[in-house]
């Protein structure tokens, strides 16, 4: 499809304990586009996402074989500096995870980790990314308040701004709107539509309508395998596989 994918996976198998969670995953994610990963609960969507920034290793009893390639480099090959790998990827979790500190400290947390100390730069970046996450107008006059005071929807946009602030190439989202009200969800979705100009976005979602609204490409997973992968239009309007047809048609959930 393309020559230099940011993010590719080849022959990935993941076992947790005796269970095989992911079976022989091979995929190249399209650059600067939203790829939605859909499938019923427990099909391995989240696990797949977590293998991409090696968070999966923090679960107990995990065994991973195969390759995850970021700009052609396998991240499971003795990648010494995990922090610089993770800097390339922002993560947006299912539920918002505000750090126990102020709104401002949340946004610049990643920047400070990576050694930026100049207060002026930090403030500029905080504003820039809060604007991109369309949160600036709501919080610019109370940046020193604890982040936990924000509403859940605002917290999730704060997490998005925090992830963007480390200036990643790829954004990984794990059902990022599942805990949000419809209006907050819409704001997050609008942000994604803008962000895909510059970022490769991988969006795990169980909301088919969301995938239909946002995705340029769709991956359908079932029981740890990729059943079908292609442009969103094709998958939704003319799926090749029987399982995909049934899932899209609401027959398996």
């Amino acid at each position: 499809m393309q020559i230099n994918p940011h993010l590719g996976i080849s022959q990935l198998n993941v076992h947790i304990g005796d269970q095989q969670i992911l079976k022989n995953i091979n995929i190249n994610f399209p650059n600067k586009a939203i790829t939605a990963i859909i499938g019923p609960s427990g099909c391995g969507k989240t696990t797949l996402l977590k293998t991409m920034n090696r968070l999966i290793e923090n679960s107990r009893g995990v065994n991973i074989t195969g390759k995850v390639l970021i700009n052609g480099q396998n991240i499971y090959d003795d990648y010494e500096d995990l922090t610089s790998l993770r800097k390339k990827m922002g993560l947006l979790a299912q539920r918002p995870t505000p750090l126990p500190m102020s709104i401002y400290a949340n946004v610049v947390f990643g920047l400070k980790l990576h050694g930026i100390k100049d207060e002026k730069i930090l403030q500029e970046k905080a504003e820039k990314y809060l604007r991109i996450a369309s949160l600036w107008d709501e919080v610019h006059d109370r940046m020193r308040d604890p982040a936990s005071k924000l509403s859940i929807g605002q917290q999730q946009r704060l997490c998005l701004a925090r992830g963007l602030a480390i200036e990643p190439e790829i954004i990984l989202c794990d059902e990022p709107t599942s805990a949000l009200d419809p209006i907050s969800s819409k704001k997050i979705e609008e942000s994604f539509n803008e962000l895909k100009q510059e970022y490769t976005i991988i969006l795990v979602t169980h909301i088919l309508r969301q995938a239909r609204r946002l995705a340029d490409y769709v991956v359908f997973m079932y029981l740890g395998e990729i059943i079908e992968f292609g442009p969103a239009k094709e998958i939704f309007e003319n799926p090749k596989e029987q399982l995909t047809k049934e899932y899209i048609g609401g027959l398996i959930s």
Binding site: K50, L55, R86, M89, A93, F109, C159, L172
Partner: peptide, 12 residues
Amino acid sequence: ELRDSTLSLGAT
């Protein structure tokens, strides 16, 4: 999730 988020920002 809080740990995952912190690590994914590049924290050791």
